[in-house]
Simulated scan of single mutants.
Amino acid sequence: MKLFRNKQVLPYLQLAPAFLLIAGLLANGMINGITESLHMEFSWSTEAYRALFTESLFWTSLWYTFLITLISTILGLLIGLGITHFLFSYLMKDRWKAVIWVPMLFPHFAAGYLIVLLFSDSGWISGFSYHLGVISQLGDFPNLVNDKKGVGIILTYVWKEIPFVVLMLLPIYVQLDNRLKDVVRTLGGSKSNVFLTAQWPFLWPSIIEIAFILFAFIFAAFEVPYLLGVTFPQMTPVLAYEWFFDGTWTQRPLAFASMTVMTVTIVTLTIAVYSSSQKYRHRLMKGS
């Protein structure tokens, strides 16, 4: 009974059921995916992985997915950090929090459809531009939706993830010690010196973790690329979906193999990012 009264152990015990549930779901999915990827034509084989790694379509899709994910993550993180940094005093008020967090109310699929309504060549913005005389016809509006560069996908994720970045950074800004900023200003430091010296070292580990959360989510997401993407190149989750549902029975192991590779990559990077950020926090607490 003393164990349940220990204030240091109690939070971990309270989180244990949720952790075990999430870990169980992840393990179940991983086991099923690996099992199906190794099962080809009523026998066990690693042929699916050999075929996957020699498939040029997979590598093209993986590179395309990486670029879209990286650009979306960087833009969302930079804009979210800028909003939090420069509008921190306003964001502490409830009405401004409500404004910045409105996009979080929409699911990603709805956000993607909103991007279609706004930025397609027959959307609202192109219509306004046509009536204002900015473009001579609707077809002159730049193709921002269902384009090979993935602009529509990036716009959707950036719009959706900025509020998440602000939500994660606000508590950190609240805990920052303003005395450090006063010291830097007293010594003649500029605004950039204040940010880099008194704020950035404390923001850095959390920013890395937030960036990885965004990267992992976008990297494995399906609905937005499926709605706003093109037939080629495709993001890897969409390619896996088509291999599973639109391909032959021999392509289904490829779908499981591709998602297994992505999952293993994300889990490995999660462990690496978490361990490195925790080491950095430990050094920061010691003053080094």
Rank of each mutant, 00 (worst) to 15 (best):
W204C: 04
L21K: 05
V267F: 14
L26N: 11
A110S: 13
L117A: 05
L228A: 07
T265F: 15
G150F: 07
F195L: 10
Y280I: 15
L269E: 09
Y49N: 08
D121L: 07
K148Y: 11
Q251D: 14
F119G: 00
I71H: 12
N143C: 00
I22Q: 07
M104K: 04
F215D: 01
A220C: 03
L62M: 11
E209K: 10
N193D: 15
T65E: 04
V267L: 15
F19M: 14
K7H: 06
I31N: 01
S61I: 04
M259P: 02
S275Y: 04
V145L: 00
S45W: 03
W249V: 14
L132H: 07
I34Y: 05
Q14P: 03
E47Q: 14
F119P: 00
V184D: 04
S258W: 12
D147W: 04
L144V: 10
K148V: 15
P233W: 02
S258L: 09
H131A: 15
G229P: 02
M92S: 10
I210A: 03
V174D: 07
L21C: 12
T60N: 12
I213G: 01
E36C: 00
Y130C: 02
A221V: 07
H131K: 15
D147R: 02
Y12W: 13
L38D: 09
V194E: 12
F86Y: 15
T69P: 06
K279G: 01
S45D: 08
F202Y: 13
R185G: 04
F164N: 01
T197W: 00
F202I: 06
V116Q: 06
L10K: 07
D147E: 13
M40Y: 10
K93P: 02
G152M: 06
F109D: 08
T231D: 06
V224N: 02
S275G: 01
A18Q: 08
S37F: 03
Q234F: 00
I83K: 10
G133S: 08
